[in-house]
Design a protein around this nucleic acid. Structure first.
Length: 233
DNA sequence: GGCCAGGACACCA
DNA sequence: TGGTGTCATGGC
């Protein structure tokens, strides 16, 4: 597939998803600071469990940098217990808050008034923040253009036969960003839509042999091999 | 009762 | 650079 075809295909997939599902209003959190917390807590974890953890933090009036720093790690771990990996995640939240206070005095405005490349590198240097979490924070909390690659993205696109030569995070990200216009709203919706598709198809039709997410299904080359996705299109 | 979910990191070769 | 083990709950 040449570049032009890839451009068209990626946009085509986006347009089909948008037509079917509409705007996703991501990230599912009220404020940018909550987006950051959620991005860390949702690592390899169902979002419904993250919601429980965030609710606990709210009730403890601990959903802010200063309060999170003051909590002991054990106490923080207990508050976020429901979202799993609570010990490591407590350490990760702590690490971010220390850095955020020291370097940016808890100011999201200061944090996000810099270019994406520099911001991304700084985030990656923090313990517990890897590629996906960094990009989620930049895009959904900072409202800056970067494309988020997650397990759904790789699986869905992979099933459609669309994948970079090298199966690395950076190559996946490059594939999208070099073949789509640099547009925050587009990047925002695209990722939200891929997750929506991934969740819906997996949950509703886990064994469907025509489902593009079923690993036993042969890739037909169609954009949506799953027949369920053609309804209402 | 088993499987898996919007990862990241340490450790090893 | 790449593969594997670890961290853990809750929903289905």
């Amino acid at each position: 597939m040449d570049d032009q075809e890839l451009n068209r295909t990626l946009l085509n997939i986006y347009q089909r998803l948008y037509t079917k599902y509409g705007p996703q209003h991501w990230w599912p959190a009220e404020k940018p600071f909550e987006v950051i917390i959620g991005a860390i807590l949702t690592q390899s974890t169902n979002w419904t469990n993250v919601e429980k953890a965030i609710k606990n933090l709210k009730q403890a009036d601990a959903l802010k940098p200063d309060a999170l720093r003051k909590l002991s790690k054990d106490k923080l771990a207990r508050l976020i217990h429901a979202c799993g990996y609570y010990n490591v995640k407590a350490s990760k939240l702590k690490a971010f808050m220390e850095w955020f206070g020291e370097k940016y005095h808890d100011s999201l405005e200061r944090l996000f008034t810099q270019d994406v490349v520099s911001l991304r590198q700084q985030l990656l240097d923090i313990y517990g923040i890897g590629n996906e979490t960094a990009d989620a924070i930049i895009l959904y909390a900072g409202n800056k253009p970067t494309f988020v690659i997650d397990a759904y993205t790789r699986r869905i696109m992979g099933r459609m036969g669309i994948k970079p030569y090298k199966d690395s995070y950076n190559d996946w990200q490059k594939m999208f960003m070099e073949n789509l216009p640099t547009d925050v709203k587009l990047f925002n919706e695209y990722h939200g839509l891929l997750v929506k598709l991934g969740k819906e198809v997996c949950r509703t039709h886990p064994l469907c042999h025509q489902c593009c997410l079923n690993p036993t299904t042969k890739n037909t080359g169609d954009v949506f091999p799953c027949r369920h996705l053609h309804h209402g299109k």
